[in-house]
């Protein structure tokens, strides 16, 4: 009887070896950018367009909100975003600012059936025309579990 239980136990343990496991994908290809006011709290911001350098069409138009989700170029290690908004004191009537976010692409293969998972890590910025203190990185990893990657005081 004891031996029977031993064999059942071994069979249950051995079954785990053939379990392919779950494909847990926590990666994301968007930077979550939150707009903040001078007090550091979330505040609504308005932009006519937000576009990506090298992409013909703006990715967002008539933005009016406290945050935006910015897609990163998965085949590059940096993506430049151009923000435009009306400006009365500008000769063109439009103020144009840009931010270049940099990141490191890391590929992880957990299982051939799950495919290769592309992670974007070490988020930083190399260009920011909004002003030196206006942009802060709050989380350097682009993950589904991360609600905010950076704050911008426009």
């Amino acid at each position: 009887m004891t031996m029977r239980f031993l064999w059942i136990g071994l069979a249950l343990l051995g079954a785990g070896c053939f379990n392919p496991g779950d494909c847990v994908k926590n990666n994301k290809t968007n930077i979550e950018l939150e707009f903040v006011g001078s007090n550091g709290r979330a505040a609504a911001a308005q932009f006519s367009t937000i576009s990506i350098s090298g992409v013909a069409q703006p990715i967002l138009s008539n933005v009016n909100g406290t945050s935006v989700s910015l897609p990163v170029n998965p085949a590059a290690s940096s993506t430049t975003y151009v923000f435009t908004r009306p400006a009365l004191n500008s000769p063109t009537g439009v103020r144009r600012d840009s931010i270049t976010f940099t990141y490191r692409n890391q590929v992880l293969v957990l299982n051939p059936d799950c495919g290769a998972i592309l992670y974007h890590r070490d988020l930083d910025f190399s260009v920011n025309t909004f002003g030196s203190e206006s942009l802060r990185i709050t989380n350097r990893q682009l993950l589904k579990s991360v609600a905010r990657n950076a704050t911008l005081r426009p």
Binding site: I52, P71, N73, A75, V107, G115, L118
Partner: peptide, 18 residues
């Protein structure tokens, strides 16, 4: 080496080799 294809609404279908 991994050759992977990712799909993105902005950048479309991107194939890259890492």
């Amino acid at each position: 080496q991994a050759t992977i294809t990712t799909e993105n609404t902005t950048f479309g279908r991107v194939t890259q080799t890492i």
